[in-house]
Amino acid sequence: MSRHALIVDGRRILVERDPMDRLLDVLRDAGAKGVREGCGEGECGSCTVLLDDQPVCACLVPVFQADGASIVTSAGVIDAAGQDALASAMLTEGGVQCGACTPGIAVTAHALLAKDPAPDRDAVRDALAGNLCRCTGYERILRAVLRAATAKEEAS
């Protein structure tokens, strides 16, 4: 057991954990339920979070590696009112079905748009290649991310 300090969605938390505990479990135990386990081996992306702005699979990161880092989960990228471009595009396009993949997709898409504000369809496909969705066939998710990019551009 050792102490670890993390910043989760802007909030500082202090935990007493085995340093090898998965960041996934630490975040979920701290109430971040948008970090979801779908495979536990880095394949599905439903546990995606930003670790110092980089999307990572929280199931593959031991908590000690996140010590002192800033972590952003889906609750940190989607505002509670759902007013931001990404949330409203996902809802209008129908990019959300069962929701199991959705928080991870939101985090990855957010990271993409931060890096590349005007991606084309292939860029979105590449960025989301590590996030499995079994419900949508991806079509509406891709359209939603492209739509969010356009909306953000128009707003700025």
């Binding site: 979920r28 971040a32 339920k33 948008g34 970090v35 979801r36 386990e37 989960t73 889906s74 609750a75 989607i78 509670a80 759902g82 949330a87 996902m90 809802l91 209008t92 129908g94 959300v96 069962c98 929701g99 199991a100 959705t102 928080p103 939101a106």
Partner: peptide, 18 residues
């Protein structure tokens, strides 16, 4: 749009492991 979409996006929808 579906009514549970925002909760699903934010991670507050309440799956059994939550």
């Amino acid at each position: 749009p579906r009514s549970d979409g925002l909760d699903k996006l934010r991670g507050t929808a309440g799956y059994v492991d939550d």
